[in-house]
Amino acid sequence: MPPPTRELPAGARRVLVAGSPGAGKTTLAQALAARLDLPYTEMDALFHGPGWVPRPEFESDVDALLATGRWVTEYQYRAVQPRLLATADAVVWLDHPWPLVAGRLLRRTLGRALTRRELYNGNRERARNWLRGSHPLWVVAGPRFRALRDDNAARFSAEADRRGLVVVRLCGARAAARWLTAQGNPPST
Rank of each mutant, 00 (worst) to 15 (best):
R162W: 06
V140G: 03
R144L: 00
A160G: 08
E159A: 02
A173F: 04
L148R: 00
V166G: 12
V168A: 12
P136I: 05
F145R: 11
H135F: 14
R155F: 02
R163H: 04
R146D: 01
G164E: 14
D151A: 11
R146P: 00
V167A: 06
A141T: 03
N152H: 06
D161M: 13
A154K: 02
P136E: 13
A173I: 14
W138P: 01
E159D: 10
G142A: 05
S157N: 13
G142R: 14
R155A: 12
F156D: 02
G133V: 03
A173Q: 13
R169A: 07
S134F: 07
V139R: 09
A158V: 15
A160S: 14
P143E: 08
V166H: 07
L137N: 07
A160T: 10
A154L: 13
A147G: 14
R149V: 11
V139P: 00
R169K: 09
S157I: 00
A158N: 14
C171E: 09
N152C: 04
V168P: 05
V168E: 14
P136M: 12
F156W: 09
R174P: 05
A158D: 05
F156E: 11
A173D: 02
A153C: 08
L170T: 06
P143H: 09
V139Q: 09
H135P: 05
L165W: 03
W138A: 02
F145Q: 10
S134V: 08
A158H: 15
D151K: 10
A153F: 06
G133Q: 12
G133R: 04
R149G: 05
R174Q: 15
L137V: 13
A160F: 05
R174G: 08
L148K: 00
D150K: 07
R169T: 12
V167E: 05
V140Q: 01
V168H: 07
A141G: 15
D161Q: 03
L137R: 07
D151R: 15
A153Q: 10
V140K: 01
D151G: 14
R155D: 08
G133T: 10
G142D: 14
C171P: 04
L170Y: 11
D161E: 10
R174Y: 12
P136R: 14
G142H: 08
A160M: 11
H135V: 10
R169P: 02
R174T: 07
R174V: 07
L137E: 11
L170S: 07
D161T: 06
L137A: 15
R144F: 00
R169V: 04
N152D: 08
D150E: 07
D161R: 08
A141E: 00
P143T: 04
S157M: 07
D150P: 02
R149I: 00
V167I: 03
F156R: 15
A175E: 05
V167P: 01
G142C: 07
D161S: 14
R163C: 02
R169S: 04
V139A: 01
A154E: 13
L148C: 04
L170K: 10
R146W: 14
P136L: 04
A154C: 15
A141I: 01
A153K: 13
A173E: 09
R163M: 14
L137F: 07
A175N: 03
